[in-house]
């Protein structure tokens, strides 16, 4: 289950490539001028936060299991 979930998450990670801008721009400093870049950065940050909090949560669960096995 963990394995599948991790796979799924890593697939989401690859979505960041979709969030990249169009190649032809008209306004100055395309990525910053329209505020889309902040949206994609926010989405990416949330995804990363989710991944890392998930990983740390698993770490804690594993620690509990290991401690239980030791006793």
């Amino acid at each position: 289950m963990t394995r599948y979930f991790l796979t799924l998450i890593s697939f989401f990670l690859s979505l960041c490539t979709f969030a990249q801008g169009e190649s032809v721009a008209t306004s100055n400093n395309f990525m910053l001028s329209n505020h889309k870049v902040f949206v994609s950065v926010a989405v990416l940050t949330i995804i990363l936060l989710l991944i890392f909090s998930f990983l740390f949560w698993i770490e804690r669960r594993l620690k509990q299991l290991e401690d239980r096995q030791k006793n």
Binding site: C16, N29, F30, M31, L32, V37, S40, V41, L44, T45, L48
Partner: peptide, 9 residues
């Protein structure tokens, strides 16, 4: 992730 998106071309 954050830094690379903030740097322009």
């Amino acid at each position: 992730v954050i830094g690379s998106y903030m740097v322009p071309l």
